[in-house]
Amino acid sequence: MKITSTRFGEFDIDESKIIAVPEGILGFDDRRFTLITPEKHAPFCWFQSIDEPALAFVVVDARETFPSYTVALTSEESGRLMLGDGAEIVVLLVVTLAPEPAKITVNLQGPIVMNPHRMLAKQIVLEGSKYSSRHPLLPQVAGEVNASHVAG
């Protein structure tokens, strides 16, 4: 199907690439997204709304950029994501870009957790001061980035 994006123009995606976000991303009404992983923009990916061309988030795969980062899901969250025991998840961190690269931050407090098999995702809010919603990205990425991507 054809998707229109304000930033990237028009492109085709297979319907199997649509990610349902039944509870939405906090502050937005959109419920359908797709993950775009352009090689030239690695390690950044785009979490693009299917229905709103102007809405896209820049995200990074937590496993690549913050290998020690973990999210413990509640049983309710696992249920909503239809995760069985030991099911694989992909954790996406929302990036807040800035004109100055050193000021780019990543939101460790509100990760988007995705079940890649069911193409279901949910933004989780983590309580406590362990993780910041404005964690500097670059010191982390400069050392660890490589050419690999999030699996689609």
């Binding site: 906090l26 502050g27 937005f28 809405l55 988030f57 820049v58 929302v94 990036v95 807040t96 939101n107």
Partner: peptide
């Protein structure tokens, strides 16, 4: 805070 950060990020 997460909601506001989403809006900034978008």
């Amino acid at each position: 805070k997460v909601q506001k950060e989403n809006q900034l990020a978008a």
